[in-house]
Write a protein that binds this DNA or RNA. Sequence first.
DNA 1: TCTGGGGTCCTAGGACCC
DNA 2: TCTGGGGTCCTAGGACCC
Length: 433
Amino acid sequence: MVALVDCNNFYVSCERVFNPKLEKRPVVVLSNNDGCIIARSEEAKALGIPMGAPLFQFKEFLIKNNVVALSSNYTLYGDMSERVMNTLAKFTQNIEIYSIDEAFLDLSRLAFVGNDTQKLYEYGMNIRNTVLKWTGIPVSIGIAPTKVLSKVASKKAKKSSGVCVLNEQDTIKEALSNFDVEDIWGIGKAYSKFLKRHHINTALEFANAPDQWVQKHLTIVGLRIVKELRGEKCISIDEEPTPRKSVCSQKSFGEPQSDFFALYNALSTYIDSCAMKLRNQGSVANIMGVWVATNPFNLSEPQYFQSKFINLPVPTNFTGELLRYGFALLKDIYREGYRYKRVGVLFSGLAPDNTLQYNLFDNLHRDKLLRVMEAYDALNRKYGKGTIKFSAQGTDYGWKMKQEHLTEHFTTSWENILTIQLDKQVLPKLKEK
DNA sequence: TCTGGGGTCCTAGGACCC
DNA sequence: TCTGGGGTCCTAGGACCC
């Protein structure tokens, strides 16, 4: 059996842990630059605020309905996610962290739980209560024979007690017959439109579709989903995080930028953060690409998009070295006279850093640089990201993201730690305990 | 009308996820 | 005026090999 643990409205829930006044109120969390609405509390969903809606279209609506809008605080969400995952790991080591707010647990190796529906339910409840108590984050748990079915179960769980077990044939069938095909994990916009055109509207109807037809139109991926819906395990639980195959970073500017060095400042920051990710997973990059773009929504202004990719002469993850390539690439594609909205960088062709292929004409002292980067990472890990930087990143952040409603780094910065005033009557009782 | 057989590698594009 | 960011996988088709 597989359990999917899914945090409810995760970003909003994180904010609520540190600000109980947000409880029972409609709350939304915004994307970078306060651009779109990317997370909504149940109250906000009930008001009909759609996922991904641009903020400017809904500003008045939010004010009128007393909705709290917050800038996204990924430092906080990342740390809270780690706490949730660490809590889950106390229950089983067989866990796949699927995203910032979701994890699959392999229950098949927990003999004491077995296949008994009631026992599975109680176990799920125990997990749910523990996560809530230890982290303050409410979760929904779906338990079923396969990953796809556990996703179905978790959606059902959200509408009931928070835990749902789909175990017996008839309960599974019943659930699938009431489940819209477009809500199935792995069926997106295009496929659901296609399926509905062919009169497949529910998950049950999809599960009953002929294999050959499914594979022909939805590839092998679709066929796997169908089989999982029938209870046949096709998608395994990945306990080892597979190393990334590419790393990229691109962000919109708070204000459009025209100056080359403003673009390069931003690019340097993205390169630095990618290079750090590469070093963290022990990879070096063989291919590097840089692109710039104007705002595609602003049709009244001249548009420009350009990218350039190179094969790196020596695969590397050294920030300083990559900054030099970044500078040259940007120089190549930059054109004066445009108002740029974003710049981005991509690293691919990743290889393990222990298979380093040296270049005959390489004149860098790589052993020394390796130690420099190790010290660099150690400092930033210990005292916080950005403690030490490369000079290319500069000090002028005209391109900086807009974050007008940012909450504090409650769990990762001593300066932001909450102070709590204890009631005089509570204190002696606590001491007793 | 007919035009060998078997393979690899790369890329672009489309689908999907959170 | 204002519209997020970071990933994965699969397939078809072309170029190339013998």
